[in-house]
Design a protein around this nucleic acid. Structure first.
Lengths: 190, 190
DNA sequence: GTCTATAGCTAGATAGAC
DNA sequence: GTCTATCTAGCTATAGAC
């Protein structure tokens, strides 16, 4: 296939940056071209289906990251507490300590909502399954483990919104700590 | 001022519907005109500053609703538990049991992020103050009361995202229940 | 595979009749 | 205060040279 991956990952990374900061509808082809350093026509050469395909490529990349950095770790055989800490650290890095928006949320609105809902839902569901698995290893009952996993995603998404709107990144850090203590707690409440 | 409020509230309500379902960047003047039943030129007659002014009007309306239905109730002298239940019911209605997106979040992204951040942040902060007041009345220490109030907003925002993406409104209902038990709990954890 | 140039359209916003 | 008609700028997308 010639030399197909020269800087493909960099391009996807730059596309992601734009989508995540201004959303799908807010991202113009001119923005995307400027961010990648490519001209519009070159972007269309790589993504013949246009902007929609660019967002799909970004989501595929996110799904891969998710499998490697979250699901695989949470499902591994290391000690439960170590798994939790490793993943929460990754998540903290991913969002730069609460300063960066979530790409999944950015692609959940406006025109994008209908286009990408299924892909995004699949990623969320993988997180829930993986975190529920971890919660079970911490000794939580199945039903409670699932609630705890859902609550984890809820806290991450909600705290990112507040952290960015109020420009208080600590709200995100606090949420990560709350998540940790929820998992460590003996069970019986959420 | 003649007859200035013929259907002004209805217009604002329709504008809000559009912004909340497709976001600020996703909402075209054509969409807004169609939803209100007015032509574009008529919208500009009412909002000479254009789309931005329409969103500001919507936010003002939201701020008013917030003062009446949330802040005033939470600050009243009724029993704490009754105040909590009343407000959570209002919030549940507002979002139609988790089926509707939050207008504040819809206006927090893309181009809109910079335009409306201060107004939205002010509304969030009012919620935090009011819920912290309630938490104090439930016997929580000041520091914990504030954390609990922040956690309340986080749970609402986060659960709305998940509820809509996964199309499971129950995730929102569960979050409201979790909020309730957090307030009722003796304190010591969040 | 990248570029310049441009087509075709829709966006936000106005002019001016009624 | 509402309308039809229209302007200009920006949008997504394509053609075709290199």
């Amino acid at each position: 296939m010639g030399n197909p991956k020269v800087d493909k990952d960099i391009v996807i990374d730059k596309l992601m940056e734009v989508f995540r900061s201004v959303g799908y509808d807010g991202a113009s082809l001119a923005d995307l071209a400027a961010a990648t350093g490519l001209k519009k026509a070159s972007l269309y050469h790589r993504f013949p289906e246009g902007k929609e395909a660019m967002a799909h490529a970004v989501l595929d990349h996110v799904a891969d990251w998710n499998e490697k950095e979250v699901v695989a770790i949470l499902m591994s055989s290391k000690p439960a507490e170590k798994r939790l800490n490793t993943v929460l650290d990754s998540i903290n890095d991913l969002y730069n300590g609460g300063r960066l928006a979530c790409i999944l949320r950015a692609l959940s609105h406006g025109t994008a909502a209908d286009l990408f809902r299924n892909e995004i839902a699949a990623i969320f569901q993988n997180w829930v399954v993986a975190f529920a698995h971890l919660a079970a290893d911490f000794g939580h009952e199945p039903e409670m483990a699932k609630r705890l996993a859902e609550s984890t995603l809820i806290r991450i998404q909600g705290s990112l919104i507040l952290a960015q709107t109020l420009q208080q990144p600590n709200l995100f850090k606090n949420a990560l700590n709350d998540i940790k203590s929820d998992f460590l707690k003996p069970s019986g409440n959420k």
